[in-house]
């Protein structure tokens, strides 16, 4: 089993940034499976009235 450490000079350990990156890619894949990018896209291609202080 991989052990997460910030300072990973010992073989067998993965550095914190690599663990974070891996987690990030897993989350991105989970988001894709759940169709979350479509939600983001739909929001982003309409003028966000809240963002511009109207809605």
């Amino acid at each position: 089993m991989l052990t997460l450490k910030n300072n990973a000079k010992t073989s067998g350990h993965i550095p914190g940034w690599a663990a974070g990156l891996l987690t990030g890619f897993l989350f991105l894949a989970a988001g894709a499976l759940r169709g979350e990018y479509t939600v983001i896209f739909r929001k982003a291609v309409m003028i966000c009235l809240e963002c511009i202080g109207i809605g």
Binding site: W17, G20, T23, G24, F27, L28, G31, A32, R34, Y37
Partner: peptide, 12 residues
């Protein structure tokens, strides 16, 4: 998950 993924990738 999707946005957490972006934040983890950029942050890491």
């Amino acid at each position: 998950f999707a946005v957490l993924g972006f934040l983890f990738v950029f942050g890491s």
